[in-house]
Design a protein around this nucleic acid. Structure first.
Length: 279
DNA sequence: AACCAGGTTCTTC
DNA sequence: GAAGAACCTGGT
């Protein structure tokens, strides 16, 4: 007996949301998307404006997953704000929105986002997924669902206790010591992830950068995807290319609005996925 | 076989 | 500070 909760959605496309590079633990199957988030296995099926989530009931949807999927936000308003801030340069952003509308910025777990984006550095998407999944399979807790076994994302405590040698076995390479330092600082209390929720953006960014191996880009991704601080505008190589290509005179990074990070996701997707036929 | 991949640190000027 | 090399590893 499995629970299924169904609801209507606007401005939400599950395939885009889970395959735009913001998360690493979900897979596109033939007719659905599935993966583990917040310690739970979920399976999402979508037909146009209607989604069904297997494994949850209405109560859990209202209290957890609506929020996780960012379905409580009005993306019409958000897109308008983004257009106001980016549209003054040229029409690139409106093209990006045409292609990427339906992506929502997930509200991922603090630690999972931090750890995943540390692993993402100087790395490619398939290998990031491979390492993150290896980390979960090796150190996470088992989650049984419908005869299959899935794994939760391991806590900082468990990662710390596993030690750096164990992380090396997971083929993290030079990122092992970074992940370990993050876990260590959290376990020892030098870093309090909960505290970041109430910090101003600049303070939060600096705070995270105390971690060895966390620079501005990883800090910004953590704040955007793990804290929903949507004013974050992570600049990676793709966004650098976007700026060079479409905004040759540059853009004012201090005036991108409170949804800059969502615009960043649209632009990233636009540049990266529209020229690949794999979408 | 050399080069690259959703960065960061370390060195050097 | 700004530019350049080095960094693990797996895939072309």
């Amino acid at each position: 007996m499995v629970n299924v909760y169904s609801t209507k959605v606007k401005n939400f496309v599950s395939k885009l949301t889970f395959d735009c590079g913001q998360c690493f633990r979900f897979e596109k199957r033939d007719n659905y998307i599935d993966g583990v988030a917040l310690g739970k296995y979920i399976r999402i099926t979508q037909n146009d404006d209607s989604i069904s989530i297997e494994g949850i009931d209405e109560n859990e949807y209202e209290n957890v997953w609506k929020y996780y999927l960012d379905l409580d936000e009005d993306y019409e308003t958000i897109n308008d704000d983004i257009l106001n801030h980016f549209g003054k340069y040229n029409d690139t952003i409106s093209k990006a929105i045409d292609v990427a509308n339906g992506i929502r910025i997930l509200r991922q777990d603090h630690w999972e986002a931090l750890c995943s984006f540390i692993i993402s550095q100087n790395n490619n998407s398939p290998r990031i997924k491979k390492i993150v999944n290896a980390l979960c399979e090796t150190l996470g807790e088992t989650i049984e669902y419908s005869g299959n076994t899935y794994y939760s994302f391991p806590s900082p405590q468990v990662v710390y206790e596993a030690g750096i040698d164990k992380l090396n076995e997971l083929r993290m390479g030079f990122r092992s010591k970074y992940v370990f330092d993050a876990a260590k600082k959290i376990v020892e209390g030098t870093i309090d992830l909960k505290l970041i929720e109430s910090m101003e953006f600049d303070e939060a960014e600096k705070y995270l950068m105390q971690i060895f191996g966390v620079g501005k880009k990883v800090a910004d991704c953590t704040l955007l995807y793990g804290y929903h601080k949507t004013e974050a505008f992570p600049v990676d190589v793709w966004i650098k290319r976007v700026i060079e290509k479409y905004y040759p005179c540059g853009i004012d990074l201090n005036d991108l609005g409170k949804y800059a990070g969502i615009a960043q996701q649209y632009l990233f997707f636009y540049e990266r996925y529209t020229q690949k036929d794999g979408m």
